[in-house]
Design a protein around this nucleic acid. Structure first.
Length: 627
DNA sequence: GTAGGGTTAG
C-alpha cells in the first residue's frame, strides 16, 4: 500500500506530461480495489481528476462492485448520469452497475437501468445480457429472466451458469438441476453453484454426491461444501471436510474457508481447532477484515476465551454492528454484564447503530446478571431510540428475565399484551418461572397454552407430571407420562462434548460406548466417594421417573457432562483446564457437583451450556448460582 | 458477467 501513496504524491507534485492522468488513475484505482481500500480509490477519483473519461469512470464502478460496495457503485453511476461533462455509460459501465443492483436486489432501480441499457444501445452485449438475467433472478422476477434467456441467440457457459444459479437462489432446486443436466459444457462454477444450491435447501447428501463426482476441485467448491455443513448445523462434518481438504486437496484454505471453519468451531466449542486457524491466519498474514475478524472474535467468545475475543476485536481495523454485537453477546454469555453495557455505550459513541441482535446481547446480559429493571429499560428503549421493533426473541428474553426474578404477573401480562402471537419459547420462559416459584395454578394454565401450540412439548409434560407428583396426585402424574409416551414425545437427549488432542469426544447420558468407558465410570465412582466425604448431597428431587433413591442417584451421576468431566480428568494432565460444551442447560445437581469437583481435583472447569458459560474454580462458579 | 463467508431467546 505504501508505494501507492508514493506514486500518487509523485503524480500530484510532478505530473507526467506525456501520460494522460486518467490512465494513471485507472491503474491506481485498480490497486486500491485489489487492496480493498476503496476510500483511497474514491479520493483519487474525486480529488485528482479534472475530467474523468469513460475508462476511469468504469474502473471506479468496477472497483466498487468488486469490493461488494454496491451502494457506492449505484451512487457513482447516478452521479455520472447527472454530471454535465461526464461520458456516456457503455457496456462496461452497465455490467458493473447491474451487478450492484443485483446485489442490492432493488427491482425499481434495476428496471430503470434496464431502460438505460436500451437507450444507450448496449442490450446486444452478451455480458450485459447475462448481468440482466442475474439481476432479474435476484429481484425475484424469474419469468422475465427466463424470457431474456430464451430470446438470446448466443449464449455462453456463464449464461447457463446464471440460469442455474438463479433457480438455486430462488429455491427451485429441481429446475436448477434440470438446467444443469442439459448443459453441454460445465465449469467449476456450474458444479459449485449446484453444490451450494443443494446445501442451501439442506440436501447435503446430494451436495456431497455432486462434490465427490466433480472432475476437478478448487477452493470455492471446498468452501461451498464446508459452509454447507456449517450452515446446516453439521459442525463436526464441516471440520472433517476441512481436514480432508488439507490432506488431499493440495489447496490452501483462504479467508472464506477460515470463516466457515471458525463458525463451526464456535458452535462446537472446539477451541484447539479454532486456535489452529488463528495461527494459520497469522502465518499466512491474512488481513483481519470484517468477516474474518468477526468470526475469530466470536469463536474465542463462544469457546470460553472472552479476553482473547476482546483482543481480536481491539485489533480489528474496522468494526461493524456485527462486531459490536458479538463482543456484547460474548461478555453477556460470560456474565460480564457491566462490561457489556460499557461496550454498548462505546458502540454508540463510535456512532454505530445497534440492531435487533445487539439488543439480544444486552437483554441476555441482564438475564444472566438478574438485572430486571435494566433489561426492561433496554427493551423499552429499542423502538423509540433506535427504531427497532422488538421481535419475538426480545419478548422471549424479557419474559425470561421477569420469570426468573419471580415477577410472574408482569411476565404473563406482557405476553398477553404482545402484538405478535406468542410462541412456545415465550410461554416456556414463563413456565420456567412457574416451576422455580412453584406457581402451580399459573403453570397449568401455561402448559395448556403450550400444548395448544405444540402437542409434543416435552418440558410441559415433565412439568405437569412433577406438579401432580408433588401434590400427591400420582394417578394424574402417571396419566400425564402415559400421554407423553403415546404422543411419541421424546426429551432431547443431553449431550456433552470435550476436545482432547484435537478430537471432539461426544457423550450422551448414561453413555457406555466410549472405549475407555470402564475407566470413566471408575473415575465417577471415585469422585462420588470423595464428594460424599466433602459433604455433597445429590439433588434427587428433580428426577421424575424412578422411585428408588439409589437408582435416582445413579441417573444423576451419569449425566453427560459428568461423563465428559470424568473423561477429561483421566485424559489430560494435572492442573489443565477442562472445557465442556453441553447442548442443554446444566442441571442443578451437575452444577453443584461440578463446583465440588473443581475443588477436589484442583482444576478449573469451564462449562458452556445452552445459554452461558460457567467457570468453576475452587468450589465456586462464576455465575454465582444464578442461571 | 456466473459459484464460497460472520452476530439472534429456550
Amino acid at each position: 500500500m505504501h508505494h501507492l501513496y508514493q506514486i500518487q504524491a509523485q503524480i500530484i507534485t510532478n505530473p507526467i506530461p506525456s501520460v494522460e492522468p486518467n490512465r494513471i488513475a485507472v491503474k491506481l484505482i485498480g490497486v486500491c480495489a485489489a487492496h480493498g481500500n476503496m476510500r483511497h480509490g474514491e479520493l483519487i477519483f474525486t480529488h485528482y481528476l479534472t475530467s474523468p473519461n469513460i475508462f476511469v469512470c468504469n474502473a471506479l464502478l468496477k472497483a466498487f462492485a468488486q469490493n461488494n460496495d454496491w451502494r457506492s457503485t449505484v451512487c457513482y453511476f447516478n452521479y455520472q448520469l447527472v454530471l454535465p461533462n461526464a461520458p456516456d455509460p457503455d457496456e462496461y459501465t452497465f455490467t458493473s452497475v447491474l451487478k450492484a443492483c443485483a446485489g442490492l436486489a432493488q427491482a425499481a432501480e434495476g428496471e430503470k437501468i434496464h431502460s438505460l441499457v436500451t437507450k444507450y444501445g448496449c442490450e446486444s452485449n452478451l455480458y450485459v445480457k447475462n448481468s440482466l438475467i442475474d439481476l432479474y433472478f435476484k429481484v425475484g422476477c424469474f419469468g422475465i429472466a427466463q424470457k431474456l434467456f430464451d430470446e438470446m441467440d448466443v449464449r455462453d457457459v456463464v449464461t447457463w451458469n446464471t440460469l442455474v444459479s438463479g433457480y438455486c437462489l430462488s429455491g427451485h432446486i429441481d429446475k436448477a438441476k434440470g438446467v444443469f443436466e442439459t448443459m453441454a459444457e460445465k465449469t467449476l462454477v456450474s458444479w459449485s453453484t449446484m453444490i451450494s444450491g443443494y446445501a442451501k435447501v439442506g440436501n447435503l447428501e446430494e451436495a456431497r454426491r455432486l462434490f465427490e463426482e466433480m472432475p476437478e476441485r478448487n477452493v470455492v467448491c471446498w468452501n461451498a461444501m464446508i459452509a454447507g455443513y456449517a450452515q446446516n448445523e453439521k459442525y463436526a462434518d464441516a471440520i472433517n471436510m476441512f481436514r480432508r481438504m488439507q490432506q488431499e486437496g493440495g489447496l490452501a484454505p483462504n479467508d472464506v474457508t477460515s470463516v466457515s471453519v471458525l463458525s463451526a468451531c464456535a458452535h462446537l466449542g472446539a477451541l484447539d481447532w479454532g486456535k489452529w486457524i488463528d495461527r494459520y491466519i497469522r502465518r499466512k498474514k491474512m488481513e483481519l477484515g470484517l468477516s474474518l475478524g468477526n468470526a475469530l472474535a466470536d469463536m474465542y467468545a463462544k469457546c470460553g476465551c472472552i479476553t482473547e475475543a476482546r483482543r481480536v476485536f481491539d485489533k480489528m481495523q474496522e468494526r461493524d454492528v456485527i462486531s459490536w454485537s458479538i463482543i456484547i453477546a460474548g461478555l453477556a454469555m460470560h456474565g460480564n454484564a457491566n462490561e457489556a453495557f460499557g461496550c454498548f455505550k462505546e458502540m454508540i459513541a463510535h456512532s454505530v447503530k445497534p440492531n435487533e441482535i445487539t439488543f439480544m446481547g444486552l437483554l441476555t446480559a441482564c438475564t444472566h446478571a438478574g438485572l430486571v429493571d435494566k433489561g426492561l429499560d433496554y427493551f423499552h428503549m429499542m423502538a423509540p431510540a433506535y427504531d427497532i421493533v422488538p421481535k419475538i426473541e426480545h419478548y422471549g428474553c424479557v419474559v425470561d428475565l421477569l420469570s426468573r426474578a419471580g415477577r410472574l404477573d408482569e411476565a404473563e401480562k406482557l405476553i398477553n399484551s404482545m402484538s405478535i402471537k406468542p410462541n412456545v419459547i415465550v410461554w416456556g420462559a414463563l413456565l420456567g418461572g412457574c416451576r422455580k416459584y412453584k406457581d402451580a395454578e399459573r403453570g397449568e394454565r401455561v402448559v395448556h397454552r403450550i400444548l395448544e401450540l405444540d402437542s409434543e412439548h416435552s418440558g410441559s409434560y415433565v412439568y405437569l407430571s412433577n406438579i401432580y407428583t408433588s401434590m400427591g396426585k400420582f394417578k394424574d402424574a402417571a396419566r400425564c407420562r402415559l400421554r407423553m409416551r403415546d404422543n411419541g414425545v421424546m426429551k432431547l437427549p443431553g449431550c456433552s462434548w470435550i476436545e482432547v488432542d484435537n478430537t471432539v469426544y461426544e457423550f450422551f447420558m448414561g453413555d457406555r460406548s466410549h472405549p475407555q468407558s470402564e475407566k470413566i465410570y471408575l473415575m465417577i465412582k471415585e469422585l462420588r466417594l470423595k464428594m460424599k466425604l466433602a459433604g455433597y448431597k445429590p439433588k434427587t428431587d428433580i428426577v421424575v421417573h424412578s422411585i428408588d433413591e439409589e437408582e435416582k442417584e445413579d441417573a444423576l451421576s451419569v449425566h453427560s457432562e459428568k461423563l465428559a468431566i470424568a473423561f477429561g480428568l483421566i485424559s489430560t494432565s494435572e492442573g489443565t483446564t477442562i472445557r465442556i460444551v453441553k447442548n442443554l442447560r446444566v442441571c442443578n445437581d451437575c452444577h453443584d457437583a461440578t463446583k465440588i469437583i473443581s475443588k477436589i481435583v484442583r482444576r478449573e472447569i469451564i462449562v458452556r451450556d445452552r445459554s452461558r458459560f460457567h467457570h468453576f474454580k475452587d468450589g465456586r462458579c462464576s455465575c454465582n448460582d444464578y442461571w
